[in-house]
Computed example of a mutant assay.
Amino acid sequence: MYYILDSKGGFRYSDATNKNYSDWTLTPVPQPCWSPRFSGIRDDTTGEWSGVWVQEVEPVPTAEEMCFRIDAYADEMRRLVAVDPLRAVEYERTAAEAQAFKDAGYPEDAVPRTVAAWAIMGRTAEEAADGILTEAAKYAEVLYLVRERRLEAKELIRRKLAAGEIDEARQVVDDAIKAIQTAVSGSRSSEDL
Rank of each mutant, 00 (worst) to 15 (best):
T94E: 04
I132M: 01
W24R: 10
L5I: 07
A16E: 13
A104M: 05
Q181S: 13
D84Q: 06
R170W: 01
V52F: 13
A163W: 08
R188H: 05
P61V: 00
D109C: 11
W34P: 05
D23V: 04
V173A: 07
E191Q: 14
R37C: 04
V172A: 04
R150C: 03
V115D: 14
L5K: 13
A98L: 00
K138T: 09
D174G: 03
E108R: 09
D75G: 08
A137H: 05
G47H: 09
Y21S: 10
V60F: 03
Y144P: 06
L145D: 12
A95F: 01
R158G: 14
P30Q: 10
A162W: 04
E141L: 13
V146T: 03
T94W: 04
A169T: 00
D75H: 04
W53E: 09
K102D: 00
R159E: 13
R188N: 08
G40V: 03
P30K: 09
S39V: 15
M77T: 00
K178W: 07
E58Y: 05
A163K: 11
D174E: 11
T114A: 03
E92M: 10
L26R: 07
A117C: 05
E92K: 14
I166F: 04
T17S: 15
S187L: 03
A169K: 10
L80K: 12
T134C: 02
P28N: 10
P61C: 01
L5W: 05
G47N: 13
I157E: 12
E108A: 15
P59Q: 11
V81S: 00
R12G: 12
V54Q: 15
T46Q: 08
T114D: 03
E168G: 07
P36N: 05
S35N: 14
M1T: 12
A74T: 02
R12F: 03
E90P: 00
V115E: 06
E155Q: 12
K8A: 07
P85I: 01
E58M: 13
A162T: 12
S185G: 00
E127H: 05
L156M: 07
Q171A: 10
A116Y: 02
R79E: 01
E58H: 12
T25P: 02
A72R: 08
R37N: 11
I4K: 14
A136Q: 01
T25R: 14
R93G: 02
G186S: 05
E65V: 04
V184G: 02
E92Q: 14
A169F: 00
W49C: 09
L151R: 06
Q31P: 01
S22F: 09
V60Q: 11
R188A: 07
R159H: 07
G105C: 10
I166Q: 13
V115M: 12
L161E: 08
E165S: 14
V111K: 11
R78H: 02
V142T: 15
I120K: 15
R87H: 03
K8R: 04
S35A: 14
A82Q: 01
R158M: 03
L5F: 15
D84V: 02
C33D: 12
S7L: 06
P30V: 12
L145Q: 14
F11T: 02
V184L: 01
V111R: 12
E65I: 05
